[in-house]
Amino acid sequence: MSEPTSREQTPLWEVFVRARRGLSHTHVGSLHAPDAELALRNARDLYTRRQEGVSIWVVPAGAITASSPDEKDAFFDPAADKVYRHPTFYEVPDGVAHL
């Protein structure tokens, strides 16, 4: 295998949290991690420091394909489908003010 260089990007992961039983998983943000196991651990530490969740999903950002606002791709610059442009912080989990 090839030795990774320090210039190589640590993969980006999108994080989805189920705040409470009965609710669906909601996108809360993203993070960097070398693999899925660490991504899950990091997500727990970063996005549920205040017990905001009962379940976490992590998805490689590269696995997500995003649509354009009007499906007219010509309107968007060539970098438009880059994964790092995936929106973060769609939803702020409830109860973050309570430690």
């Binding site: 640590t10 993070l31 960097h32 991690a33 660490l38 651990r41 990091n42 530490d45 970063l46 420091r49």
Partner: peptide
């Protein structure tokens, strides 16, 4: 070594 790990160690 990484900012995410700073948070984990503090936890």
């Amino acid at each position: 070594p990484e900012m995410e790990e700073d948070i984990a160690l503090a936890n």
